[in-house]
Design a protein around this nucleic acid. Structure first.
Lengths: 186, 186
DNA sequence: AATTAATTACCGAACGTTTGGTATATTTGA
DNA sequence: TCAAATATACCAAACGTTCGGTAATTAATT
């Protein structure tokens, strides 16, 4: 059996950067093919259902990332809550490249994206919220308080990424990371 | 001179709802024409430079709204800071229809929008920030503190609108309005 | 008061281009 | 030699845009 020219995860990473830059509607199959290193028709071999399946696969990949880099870190009771929080803040900073990267969940929830991927996006965001809710409880909050803080954490990151991109300044994102920390510490 | 079938502001309001729903790339000229009550070719009479000019006109219209409903309210020293804040919160709630409406500034800063409209979007957001900075100073903050709070207000609203839309729940937006109020009161 | 000229608003039909998607052929490694 | 992976060539439909021409109104001339 002939080997793949481009590995799955490489393919997905390349797609992600196209979606980040052009949005879902704005990303044409030619854009995606060019970025992937494969030809357009070959993308249909890897993703038989076309652009929708690419978007869906990207979201599944991102969901895996959120699970590994956020949920599993925050749910690990072997580590102190302080350190878990710091680790996750570092991971968030890394994933969004200090604020330079847009959030794929937001990008794919624009245009026709919400209709196509709404469930997957909700699912991913709920993992984020569940993760930070666990953290809040370990920091001594009631479940209700913890859930409220978790929602705030999501709002902070999403909002700061919007403002950071629109204002061409990384400061809002960096400030949001501090604010997110202050939600739990002090 | 033959009268216009559809008044400018009606035209723009209709365009806005199309952009809100479909994004910039996702909004086709057919969509825009259908929503406007004019035919596609007639849109080119009203906006000779096509889709770009429509986006630009929409942003100019939104900027006017921000100036009237937010900046002018918050800059009016004849009214107590408390009341100004409440008025603006009501206006924000109204403009975004309790969270149901996406923010056009965010919608048009996606896809190719940032490239086309970046300056206008930055300009609008700066009006928001300037307005809330004035408020913060009147609430007793230093200029630096006031500016930081103003940025937070923008992040809160943008983020909560993203989360509200993605999660199909108006709660994040409503919570953000409360959080925004608490930035200044208490 | 009537007619004509000028101006503006609008629209059906078509433009070239790009879109997402396929049918068919070739390459490649087991 | 067989099956999976990739590539070339192609397509109908939709895209943003343009054009020739018509409808509706005002201004000017008689």
């Amino acid at each position: 059996m002939r080997p793949q020219k481009v590995a799955d995860h490489v393919l997905l990473e390349n797609m992600i950067s196209v979606f980040r830059f052009n949005g879902y509607e704005g990303a044409s199959l030619n854009d995606l093919a060019n970025a992937s290193g494969l030809k357009k028709a070959s993308l249909y071999h890897r993703f038989p259902n076309g652009k929708k399946e690419i978007g869906s696969a990207v979201l599944a990949y991102i969901t895996e990332g959120i699970t590994n880099n956020i949920y599993q870190v925050l749910a690990d009771k072997n580590v102190s809550a302080d350190i878990r929080l710091n680790t996750v803040l570092e991971n968030i900073n890394e994933v969004y490249d200090g604020g330079k990267n847009s959030c794929i969940l937001r990008v794919l929830s624009m245009d026709s994206g919400l209709e196509l991927f709404g469930d997957q996006i909700k699912f991913s965001m709920n993992i984020w919220i569940d993760a930070f809710t666990l953290l809040g409880i370990d920091f001594g909050s009631t479940k209700k308080e913890a859930k409220s803080k978790a929602n705030k954490s999501l709002v902070l990151i999403q909002g700061s990424l919007v403002v950071t991109k629109a204002m061409s300044s990384l400061i809002p994102f960096q400030e949001a990371l501090k604010d997110l920390r202050n939600l739990y510490i002090e």
